[in-house]
Every structure is written in structure tokens, then in C-alpha cells.
């Protein structure tokens, strides 16, 4: 009946997960604050409340994400690449390739049957190819990110967008909107641009079956479907828990192995 916890403080959101015997009993996602320790505390408090346990009951907590060094209550900090791999493995047990798209970065990993990283790559360009890219574009279109994801299905002639720079892509979207091009075609163009960037990373690690996608962008069906077409592989989006929690889940699992 050991309780473990994982806390993933990212650039846009902070996530905390409480696990008991390999099952999630509490989780919380909050918007990141200016100080990572505050975000961590908020997320953890929410997760503890949901799990109806106290921090003292938790045997070990592992921290990850950009703010990991600042989290006060963790026993150890672990790179989010390792945590996301473990988390994805827990979410989709057959996963051998993990594509994780977070708010400000994107990573692709190949993992073994234990969820250990064999090969990984992360984006090192600007926001294009990250969750932020979709946020910005959805805002320009005046729709939610979820709606943006659904636009691909209704597109007839997706537009070509500047995909290497978020600012330029934004200018393109505005231009297309002003010239009366259907929102569905613009939306699909955005999802394609995003998928293109991610596909380069996924192919760079030589994606193998099963391909699993985690992170907030996994909820965007337009991107997932386009990416599947580009890779020529089916992509599994976790149903077991929110794909955004992968890093925190992995951290909680690693906490159990300490």
C-alpha cells in the first residue's frame, strides 16, 4: 500500500499525480505560476485532496519538468525525458515510440519494454512544433484548441503555412482569414504544419510500433491524424488517463523504484 507521487512542473502547466500500487488515485493539472515552487505546491495540494491523503503519507515523490529543481517536497529530480518515457509506457503498455508535445517543447523517444529510453530527440527551434504554436493559432482564429483539432476533418484545400516560425505563421493565418479562405482549410493547414514539424523528430528516432502520443497536443485529433498519415503508422492516444499527465505519472513510478 505504498503511496508515491510525481510532480511535473512545465512551462505552461504543472501536474501532480499520486499513485498507489501502480494505480492513479489522485491527479491535478494547474496553470504554471511565475514561481515553480508555487505551481508545484498547488498541483500537489490538488492531487492530494483528490486522493484524500496527506503529503506525509507519500513514501517518495519525484520531481520533473523545467521547474524540477525548485520543487520543495521531492526526494529526487529526474529528467522529464526519462519520466515521460516511463509514463507513456504505463499509459500504453505496448508503446515503443513516444511522441510528447508539451507547451514549449516537443520530444520523440524510442523506448524498450521497461520504459527505458533507447534514443531521444527534442526540438531546438522556436515555438513551432509545440503546444504554444497551436495556442497562438487558435487564438488568431478565435476558436478553442479543441475546435482547431476538429477542423481538419472538414477541410477541402488546406493552406500552406510558414511552419518554421510562429510569428510568421500567425501573419499567414491573418492574411488567409482576411482573404476569405475557409476556416477549415486554414485550421487544417495549421494542423499539417504542426504535424510536419513533429514528424521530422519522430522519424529521426526511427519510429517503431506502437507509436503513442502524450502531452496536451495528443488531444488534438487533427494533428494526430495528419501525423499518422505522415508517419504511415497508427498513433495510439492514451485513454487510461489524461495524456498530459505522462511526465508526472512517470515521476511517480520512478519514485516507487527509489
Amino acid at each position: 500500500m505504498t503511496l508515491t507521487a510525481g510532480c511535473d512542473v512545465g512551462s505552461l502547466t504543472a501536474k501532480a499525480v499520486i499513485m498507489r500500487d501502480g494505480r492513479i488515485i489522485g491527479a491535478q493539472v494547474v496553470k504554471s505560476r511565475a514561481k515553480p515552487e508555487i505551481s508545484a505546491k498547488e498541483a500537489m495540494a490538488g492531487a492530494l485532496t483528490a486522493a484524500r491523503v496527506a503529503l506525509e503519507d507519500v513514501a517518495a515523490c519525484v520531481g520533473t519538468g523545467y521547474g524540477r529543481e525548485k520543487i520543495p517536497f521531492v526526494k529526487e529530480v529526474v529528467s522529464e525525458i526519462a519520466c515521460h518515457a516511463k509514463g507513456a509506457k504505463w499509459l500504453v503498455s505496448s508503446a515503443r515510440t513516444v511522441i510528447d508535445i508539451g507547451g514549449q517543447d516537443c520530444k520523440a523517444m524510442r523506448i524498450d519494454e521497461h520504459g527505458e529510453v533507447i534514443k531521444f530527440i527534442t526540438n531546438d527551434k522556436c515555438a513551432s512544433g509545440t503546444g504554444r504554436f497551436l495556442d497562438v493559432m487558435a487564438r488568431v482564429l478565435g476558436i478553442s484548441v479543441d475546435e482547431l483539432g476538429r477542423l481538419s476533418a472538414g477541410a477541402k484545400q488546406p493552406v500552406t503555412l510558414a511552419s518554421t516560425c510562429t510569428v510568421w505563421a500567425q501573419a499567414d493565418v491573418i492574411k488567409y482569414l482576411n482573404s476569405g479562405i475557409a476556416v477549415a482549410d486554414i485550421g487544417a493547414g495549421i494542423n499539417i504544419a504542426m504535424a510536419n514539424r513533429v514528424a521530422i523528430l519522430a522519424n529521426s528516432v526511427k519510429a517503431e510500433h506502437d507509436v503513442c502520443m502524450t502531452g496536451g497536443v495528443a488531444k488534438n485529433n487533427g494533428v494526430v491524424q495528419t501525423l499518422a498519415q505522415l508517419l504511415g503508422r497508427r498513433i495510439t492516444v492514451p485513454r487510461k488517463a489524461d495524456p498530459q499527465l505522462a511526465g508526472a505519472i512517470g515521476a511517480a513510478i520512478i519514485a516507487g523504484q527509489l
Binding site: 529528467s79 522529464e80 525525458i81 526519462a82 529510453v117 527534442t122
Partner: peptide, 13 residues
């Protein structure tokens, strides 16, 4: 931060 994240994962590997 980004380089460190990758270094950490690499050394773990």
C-alpha cells in the same frame, strides 16, 4: 535548462 535536461537524460541512458 534545455541542454541540461538532455544531458541528464543522456547520462541516465
Amino acid at each position: 535548462g534545455r541542454i541540461k535536461m538532455r544531458l541528464d537524460a543522456f547520462l541516465r541512458q
